[in-house]
């Protein structure tokens, strides 16, 4: 089966919720495949966004490019609706002055239909997420 980046607009992924939004830096920027565009948080933490794959996928590796993110929690769901999220991964990122944080996570138990990213805390008043990619395979479509 073909492995590819599941977290792309062009592959059918969608950001269905984000707690912050600046019209100039919308959450779709996270999955447009371009690290130059980004989503910003606009205030107090925690802040979150949810990515919908519109199918069942199995994720093997996640790469998150961000700035000023301190503690990141990722939950996943295997339901058809964005419910029943379970805790999956939690990371404390390090601050990388002047360059993007590039967090690579080798995933275990990567079956998912939705991913929920929760930024619990940040190194500054605001944080940005430039891209999330999830390498893996599409398992099946919603019936």
């Amino acid at each position: 089966m073909r492995k590819f980046d599941l977290c792309l607009n062009s592959e059918g992924a969608e950001v269905i919720l984000a707690t912050s939004s600046d019209e100039k830096h919308p959450p779709e920027n996270i999955i447009d495949g371009n690290p130059e565009t980004f989503w910003t948080t606009t205030g107090m933490f925690p802040q979150e966004f949810i990515i919908c794959f519109h199918r069942h996928v199995r994720i093997e590796k996640l790469v998150i490019q961000s700035y000023f993110v301190r503690t990141l929690r990722i939950e996943k769901s295997t339901s058809k609706e964005p419910t029943d999220f379970e805790q999956w991964i939690e990371r404390d990122l390090t601050h990388t002055e002047g360059q993007l944080q590039n967090e690579e996570i080798i995933a275990r138990d990567g079956q998912a239909t939705y991913l929920r990213f929760i930024i619990l805390s940040a190194f500054d008043h605001f944080a940005s997420v430039h891209s999330v990619s999830a390498e893996g395979i599409a398992v099946s479509n919603f019936s």
């Binding site: 830096h25 130059e36 910003t40 360059q99 605001f126």
Partner: peptide, 14 residues
Amino acid sequence: QLYQETVEAFQALV
């Protein structure tokens, strides 16, 4: 203003 400066800094990263 702090927000705008921070976003400019994000923009300059890549």
